[in-house]
Write a protein that binds this DNA or RNA. Structure first.
Length: 569
DNA sequence: GCCGTTTTCGGCCCGACTGTTTTCAGTCG
């Protein structure tokens, strides 16, 4: 079913870690990490590439990697991996996750003190033998102790919604600091990844020391990890636990270079640095330099401009071919917030939402939308006060009545209908025909013939859209037992639409599946699935993911004006 | 381990910070 790309990527990541501890060349380690990342991001099945003999055409995959991949696909084993794992116990690999500990130190501790796991490490700290190692000292051991503490309280990556909320709160607070001018998010948050590790913020100002001082005094700071002239790092308390926020301060004339640099991704930056090198230039967070002379740095326009490149949307900066395309002048123009004309998945208080129909319309108007699809649950969704046929008929009348009064916005008559266990739809054709839009979703039987059921729903002539097609929850639910590739193919065959559910914990389809859908020319609808007013704001996360998948205006149906949307449906 | 019409060998992004060092190594982002 699922292809083996991610599985092999994981092996390569572990191999990279193990080689690092073995003390192999850092370049080899990086090569494995790169190969792993490339595999993770690949939208085609590696097995397919092997079949076509195109595996080593992928940048980052050479002979060595190709052989290992082929061996694994053929035999389910990777000899090199198993050899290395024999030498490097799993307990040692784990130590790499301790901040401040790297391969070199772990290698040394293993060789000289026979440290094989976290317990051993704690022992050699306590008995003082670690401190006596060459190059060690009181402070280093103290640091490792702190690292262990952080590691043991380590947080998972946080959902983007949480990260954005914290970042905006901190940014508001920072703006009150004296002498601060620009402030921006950076890192994976600015690139709108679905989950975020640390929150990165960049600012400019004359007196770095003062700004950092203000920063670490943030009301919810529980621990200051670093406090310097250009850099501060704090742990703050949140409802979900402790989160790390990093702040960097740079001079005004380096703001663009720093923003570019700290936004990343790492892979994108490495490629850019390669271009600089070819031109005999040097690029850093302070600017672009020819020899000693700084030739750019004030803005991202300036920095990218040196290389004849446009300012890439942050979401595209992943080294997924964007730099090469831009050099050829072929960078696609991806969807923007202003392109979105409406929300295609909203619940009202007719089922399990809290807003009245009027309130939904009012909020939509404020957002500048020209339509909103009311998609309340069907009767099978009892837990969500799903609508009986009578209630649905009543809601349809109600919406018609309301629409005759509304100006500047229209509510679409819709439903989020359950796909039942046998693949049928939980609503009569007679009623479906009265609706403008039909979203069909799986809400029960997550392991029961899900692929077949969804395909049956796609075949149904009155179904327009499949809602949250994989059912995954980012905070911890695998999703249905579903073959997404088959769903995408079926959607293409029957000319149906797949949803990008913009609710931050769903973001379903995800960026990888969206790319596949786009390749098969399957149209996407973005809906927030909101049940309350605040949830309309989820659109920005859906858009972020759509942009990460390089979707353009044409790939998304809710960029269409009302009349065109209705005729497409 | 990957990569290349200047190279099939010798490079591989760059800088801050820290702590251990008499000039640099390790870690991080």
């Amino acid at each position: 079913m699922e292809n083996k790309n991610k599985e092999i990527a994981k092996l390569f990541y572990r191999l990279a870690d193990a080689l690092e501890i073995k003390g192999e060349s850092g370049f080899k380690v990086v090569a494995y990490q790169k190969a792993a990342r490339v595999l993770e991001d690949l939208t085609t099945d590696v097995a397919e590439l092997v079949a076509q003999g195109k595996l080593s055409e992928i940048p980052g995959i050479g002979r060595g990697m190709a052989e290992k991949i082929e061996e694994y696909l053929k035999t389910g084993k990777m000899t090199r991996y198993e050899e290395v794992m024999k030498e490097v116990p799993g307990g040692l690999l784990q130590l790499l996750e301790i901040p401040g500990l790297g391969g070199r130190t772990i290698h040394q501790m293993h060789k000289e003190l026979n440290v094989n796991n976290l317990e051993d490490l704690k022992r050699v700290i306590e008995d003082g033998s670690l401190e006596k190692l060459y190059g060690m000292g009181k402070k280093k051991v103290e640091n490792i102790k702190k690292g262990i503490e952080l590691f043991e309280h380590a947080q998972e990556r946080m959902p983007i919604y949480e990260a954005m909320t914290i970042a905006e709160e901190v940014i508001d607070y920072l703006k009150k600091a004296e002498g601060i001018s620009h402030v921006s998010t950076a890192g994976s948050l600015r690139r709108m990844k679905e989950t975020i590790g640390d929150i990165d913020i960049l600012a400019t100002g004359r007196d770095g020391l003062k700004i950092i001082k203000h920063f670490v005094a943030f009301p919810r700071t529980v621990r200051v990890l670093a406090e310097g002239e250009t850099k501060g790092s704090i742990l703050i308390t949140t409802e979900a636990g402790e989160r790390q926020v990093d702040l960097r301060i740079v001079e005004e004339d380096s703001y663009g270079a720093a923003l570019q640099y700290f936004t990343g991704s790492k892979a994108h930056n490495i490629k850019l640095r390669g271009l600089a090198k070819d031109k005999g230039l040097k690029i850093s967070e302070y600017g672009v330099f020819r020899g000693e002379k700084k030739i750019a740095g004030r803005s991202e326009e300036e920095v990218y401009g040196v290389f004849g490149l446009p300012v890439f949307p942050p979401e595209m900066r992943e080294d997924h071919g964007e730099i090469e395309l831009a050099l050829e002048g072929k960078l696609p123009v991806i969807v923007e917030p202003a392109d979105i004309k409406g929300d295609l998945h909203v619940h009202s208080n007719w089922s399990d939402g809290v807003m009245t129909l009027e309130e939904v319309a009012e909020h939509g108007k404020q957002l500048g939308y020209s339509y909103i699809a009311i998609c309340d649950h069907s009767q099978a969704a009892r837990y969500a006060h799903g609508l009986s046929p009578d209630r649905l008929a009543e809601e349809i009348k109600e919406i018609d009545k309301l629409n005759s009064k509304l100006k500047g916005i229209k509510l679409l008559k819709g439903i989020e209908v359950d796909i039942l266990g046998d693949g049928t739809i939980d609503c009569s054709e007679e009623l479906l025909k009265k609706l403008d839009i039909v979203v069909a979703s799986i809400h029960s039987g997550f392991k029961k013939n899900v692929t077949e059921r969804i395909i049956a729903a796609l075949k149904h002539p009155l179904v327009n859209i499949i809602g949250h097609p994989t059912g995954r929850l980012i905070s911890g639910r695998e999703g249905y037992d579903v073959d997404v590739d088959k769903i995408i193919e079926a959607a293409a065959e029957y000319g149906k639409i797949l949803e990008l559910n913009a609710y931050y914990d769903r973001l379903d389809l995800d960026e990888f599946n969206l790319k596949k859908a786009k390749e098969k020319r399957v149209l996407i609808s973005i809906g927030t699935d909101t049940h309350y007013a605040h949830g309309f704001g989820m659109m920005r996360y859906g858009l972020g993911i759509a942009r990460r998948a390089w979707l353009t205006k044409k790939d998304i149906i809710n960029t269409l004006p009302l009349s065109k949307l209705l005729s497409r449906l």
